[in-house]
Design a protein around this nucleic acid. Structure first.
Lengths: 196, 196
DNA sequence: CCTACCGATCGGTAGG
DNA sequence: CCTACCGATCGGTAGG
């Protein structure tokens, strides 16, 4: 039982890496089998097919994001704290699951129905959570009156590009990246004009 | 001659759409042929193979971006103007070539060597152009002292997510999106504290 | 988890 | 731009 679970974990980890490197469609079951070290046909004793592998990765990450935003909403109260924690959680999830995160962000399109629709629903739910934090900040008078859909989208855009450039073992820790991104999103590029 | 060119334009337009919808790897030459309305084998009288189709789209967009940043550097002088124009040009290019832009941003990974390396070089060159604008703003004392690599990356991240959500015929024009993104990147989410 | 295998589909070519 | 076709590879199954 334990060894089956281990095998499956290894399988998913290998898949995430390959799906990221080559894309889901360009990765064959034979590629996966070779990396895992078993025969292609043996994969089917662990999963029903290629699509299940993609589903397990995408929904696994979706659940982590869902838990992360729930945690933020449960613990913190004011919008700035919430946003800071939400950004930090988001960045940590991306950085500590780079391959899975990449697949979650870019390869979910290859999901088969009805999984695909359910996945989109979960993603929208998360996005809605971010929007609510921004709305809270506006209500508190702490954030600029802006289109909250637009603001949430721009925030998530900045965060979701991380797997494109982040290097494990590079100069920046997840916390450092989160802090810098949070500051950037909060205050922008422009230097405040000195009061003349 | 003119009809050959027209065919090729149509071919590239169809490819961009399919590569975006299904991904490069999942799109077959038969898919393309069917959409164009010719036999699969006939595609090879226009292009050498599937890879050339991807190259034409990716390098076509790369050239447009290259020209856009050159134009900005030629015409404008202060950093805020430059950045504003660079953002506007970038957004316009994305929005007016949504399918091609998507392929340019997401599917270039499937390029074969040596085209892939050359593509990355061009992309880095563009990114370098954006970094220089930011550096100019810092030198002018107009932008906050920040890591310019990080700032350029975050800026481009916000812009490059546009093809993921922008809807042709939606409520926002390219100019409106550019304006909002520019403001967001410049001043951030946070309301300025009133002087108490 | 393996051997043996299947039908379908792939990118691409020959020859006109 | 078409007909006819090729070898390679694909996801997946049967049976153990």
């Amino acid at each position: 039982m334990a060894s089956v679970t281990e095998r499956k974990k290894q399988l998913l980890s290998v898949c995430a890496r390959l799906f990221r490197e080559k894309g889901f469609s360009a990765t064959s079951m034979r590629d996966i089998a070779q990396e895992v070290g078993i025969e292609p046909a043996s994969l089917y004793s662990h999963v029903s097919g290629k699509d299940e592998l993609l589903q397990l990765i995408c929904f696994g990450m979706a659940e982590k994001f869902s838990l992360a935003i729930q945690e933020v909403n449960d613990i913190y109260f004011n919008a700035e704290e919430k946003l800071k924690m939400a950004v930090e959680n988001h960045v940590k999830l991306l950085v500590s699951n780079l391959d899975e995160a990449y697949v979650f962000l870019r390869e979910w399109r290859s999901l088969e129905q009805p999984g695909k629709s359910e996945f989109i629903r979960l993603r929208d739910e998360y996005e809605q959570g971010i929007r609510e934090i921004i709305q809270t900040g506006i209500d508190e008078g702490k954030f600029n009156e802006t289109d909250k859909h637009f603001a949430a989208l721009t925030l998530l855009s900045s965060l979701n590009w991380i797997p494109e450039w982040y290097q494990t073992g590079g100069t920046w820790s997840a916390e450092k990246v989160a802090e810098k991104l949070y500051q950037f999103v909060l205050t922008g590029l422009k230097k405040k004009d000195p009061i003349v």
